[in-house]
Design a protein around this nucleic acid. Structure first.
Lengths: 158, 158
DNA sequence: TATTGTTATACTCTATAACTATA
DNA sequence: TATAGTTATAGAGTATAACAATA
């Protein structure tokens, strides 16, 4: 039993060679994502009962005001059906509401309710301590550099 | 129709504000992962019929020789049942075989078959052009820096 | 009694196709 | 006929619990 715990602690008794993986950016991206996902869960996911996409969606509404689903889906790289289900859940929790556009009754605006706005603001504030915890691993300059490089890799020029 | 294509092309007519997301490392990690996943699909996934974990597993066996499932599961952050299913698939394709350890018949070694070794080598070679394509977005120095920062963020000191 | 690996099962995430209502 | 959004459904991916075989 003690043996097993030790093993888990140092992730294997002997070193594992990564081979070509050590030079594959996508592999390291996935490894780093394990850490940021854990951070997210502790600082935002658990406390506010939000999944990553839900959090992103609320943050977009907070920053942009009401948005049409098409635009949300594109920004979050979500298919329309997925977005519908996501909006259903947030609506059931009373965080957003769908407002039909009176000019074109096919389309609608997604709007934060008062409760949604309050939650979005609280959850937005939680991002700061979450990111601060990353500074245990990365200096502020390194963290800024990492974001810049990730933006470039993602093809975001502006 | 033309209108719609244009929209998709430039990802939305008007700019979307990211708000607090712009300062969240995890968000940018996810965005960059979209790009590396696409690269992987085109260079490895489609051509060799491999998913990301399957590729990683083959690369680990190529670099380390036979490994016991426990160690594979730990390295790939996979639960035991998931690993079993993964190994089942690779075994059905004739890429690996399970060899029982004669000293301790509970444990086994996962070994690349000849076909598995050949495929692993070809797939390993495909990593180079894949990574080279990233150089369209990142300079060689930036790419190296990105990997270093990701390793630090993931907590890998060595 | 503990450990290795497996089976069974369920839950989330995401994708596609077909549908409804508007235009 | 085209578009916005929805419903239905299925496929991956991942997690937990219970199990069989060894030790």
């Amino acid at each position: 039993m003690a043996r097993e715990d030790d093993d888990a602690g140092r992730h294997g008794t002997d070193e594992v060679q990564l081979g070509v993986l050590s030079d594959v950016v996508g592999y390291h991206l996935a490894q780093a994502a394990v850490v940021t996902y854990d951070l997210f869960e502790r600082h935002v996911g658990q406390p506010f009962g939000l999944r990553k996409v839900e959090y992103s969606l609320l943050m977009l509404l907070l920053a942009n005001g009401p948005m049409v689903p098409k635009r949300l889906a594109r920004t979050l790289t979500l298919s329309n059906p997925n977005l519908t289900l996501l909006l259903d859940r947030l609506q059931e929790r009373g965080l957003i509401r769908r407002e039909r556009n009176e000019r074109d009754r096919r389309s609608q605006n997604i709007v934060l309710t008062d409760a949604g706005l309050a939650l979005a603001r609280d959850a937005a504030a939680a991002a700061q301590p979450m990111e601060r915890e990353l500074l245990d691993r990365l200096s502020a300059a390194e963290r800024a550099m990492l974001i810049e490089l990730l933006r470039k890799a993602a093809g975001q020029t502006r």
